[in-house]
Lab assay of single mutants.
Amino acid sequence: MFYPNSPQTSPQLTQIPYGQQYAMMQRQIQQPYHPFATTEPQARLYPYHYQGPIQQEQGGFITQQSTAASPQYVQMRVTPVDQSIMSGYPNQTANGSSSSSFNYNIHPQQQQQQQQQQQQLRHHAMPVGSVPLQDDRYRKQLIVNYLAPDVTSTDLHELFSRFGELDGARIIYDKQTNMSKGYGFVYFCHAEDAKEAVERMSGYEFHGKWLKVGYSTNPLNIVPSNSSPYVHAGSRGAAG
């Protein structure tokens, strides 16, 4: 039997160049792979992502010199942007860049009308829970959420009447099932009393439920100042 490094198959040491006398086997001759043993700084910083320098080929596509990437890492192929796409944008300079302001050559009167329309939209648009300043009635009506099913309009009136005089209180019921929808409205005579009720009743436990109280901004629920107070009856038909 002959071994790869046996004296019968191995040459004389004098015939082997210096430095390879003890590297006779194939696994010894093959050098191990060192990912950080390279002179390129990109490979030292990113050993798993770097795959060699990027070269520009004919046709405008950018390719990489090395083989496919590892399945664990996804390499994105980048193509140059066609400058003709950006030619339609206004205020574009000769080098292809555009300024931040756009001039669509709008007539001054049209621009003024658009600004007025935007101001009107901001004036009428009102986020949930906010209180408008032009109508004091919005500051007097509250919406009470997360009410228990057994709470009546009379219970709601008695709960909030300790903060001040009320114009009314009612629970909203479903017309088909005649069941409470879980929320109601309270109408105060003074805005200061309503503000105190919002601050003190939010998070209050009532009939096993934690109440959420806020201003009601729905104009359909506003009680006119010259109208008669609501009837605080315990029956659902009268309260709904």
Results as ranks from 00 to 15, higher is better:
Q83W: 03
Q92Y: 10
R27G: 04
Q120V: 10
Q176H: 13
P132V: 10
S87N: 13
F185T: 01
S161A: 09
S98Y: 13
H34A: 05
G168E: 02
A23T: 12
Q141V: 00
R77V: 01
T154R: 01
E57L: 06
T38L: 06
P219Y: 00
V78A: 13
Q26K: 15
A238E: 04
S216N: 02
L166R: 00
T38P: 14
S99R: 13
I54R: 15
T9P: 06
T93H: 12
G182I: 00
Y89Q: 12
P229H: 10
Q8Y: 04
R170I: 00
L159K: 00
G88W: 04
P108K: 14
A148V: 02
N226V: 05
S6Y: 06
G52E: 08
P41M: 04
T93K: 15
Y73G: 13
H207L: 04
Y50A: 13
L45V: 11
G129M: 04
Y230R: 04
Q115R: 12
V231I: 14
D155T: 14
F102S: 08
A148K: 08
T93C: 13
G237S: 12
R27P: 03
A238W: 12
Y204P: 01
Q83G: 05
T217K: 04
A197C: 08
F185G: 01
L13R: 14
T217S: 06
Q83P: 08
T177K: 03
D167L: 03
S161H: 10
I29D: 07
P7Y: 07
S98K: 15
S10H: 10
N226Y: 10
A169I: 01
Y50W: 06
S225P: 07
H107K: 10
T39R: 13
H190Q: 04
Q58Y: 11
Q114V: 05
A68H: 11
C189P: 00
E205C: 06
G237I: 11
V144N: 01
G214E: 03
Q109K: 13
D82Y: 09
M201T: 03
K140G: 02
S70E: 06
Y183H: 02
Y46P: 05
S180K: 02
A148Q: 13
V186I: 12
Y3V: 06
Q118S: 08
A125S: 10
F160D: 00
G234E: 12
V128E: 07
Y46A: 13
P47V: 00
G88I: 05
T39G: 14
T38H: 11
V128P: 13
A238T: 10
E196P: 14
K181A: 02
H207Y: 15
V78I: 07
Y22E: 11
V81L: 07
Q134N: 08
C189Y: 09
Q118N: 08
Y18P: 13
G88K: 12
L121T: 06
Q42T: 12
Q92I: 06
K181Y: 02
H49E: 10
Q8N: 09
T39P: 11
R236Q: 08
M179G: 05
T63G: 11
Y173W: 04
T217C: 04
R170Q: 02
K175I: 04
I172Y: 00
P4E: 06
R139V: 14
S97Y: 14
S100N: 13
F206K: 00
A37N: 13
F163Y: 03
H49K: 15
E199A: 13
K212Y: 01
G52D: 10
V144Y: 00
E196V: 13
K212M: 06
F163C: 03
F206V: 03
Q75H: 12
P71H: 12
M25T: 10
R139M: 12
M24A: 10
R77Y: 01
L156D: 00
Q109M: 11
T177H: 08
S180L: 02
V131C: 07
T67K: 15
R170D: 01
Q55F: 03
T9S: 11
D82W: 06
L147Y: 01
P11Q: 12
M86W: 09
L45C: 15
T14V: 06
V144K: 01
P229R: 05
Q58K: 12
V198Y: 15
P108R: 11
K175A: 13
T38D: 10
L13G: 12
S98P: 11
L220Y: 02
Y89M: 09
P17I: 01
G237H: 12
R77K: 10
P224R: 06
S66H: 08
F61I: 11
L159T: 04
T39F: 04
I143Y: 00
Q113F: 12
Q117I: 10
V198H: 07
D167E: 04
R44W: 02
S130F: 10
P71K: 14
P4T: 10
E165H: 14
I54Y: 05
W210C: 03
T63W: 04
Q51L: 04
P11V: 04
Q114S: 08
G184N: 01
D150Q: 14
P71L: 05
G234I: 12
M126R: 08
A37L: 05
H190E: 06
D193V: 06
Y48K: 15
Y33P: 12
Y215A: 02
D174I: 02
S202D: 05
A238K: 03
S10Y: 05
Q56S: 07
I29L: 06
E199L: 11
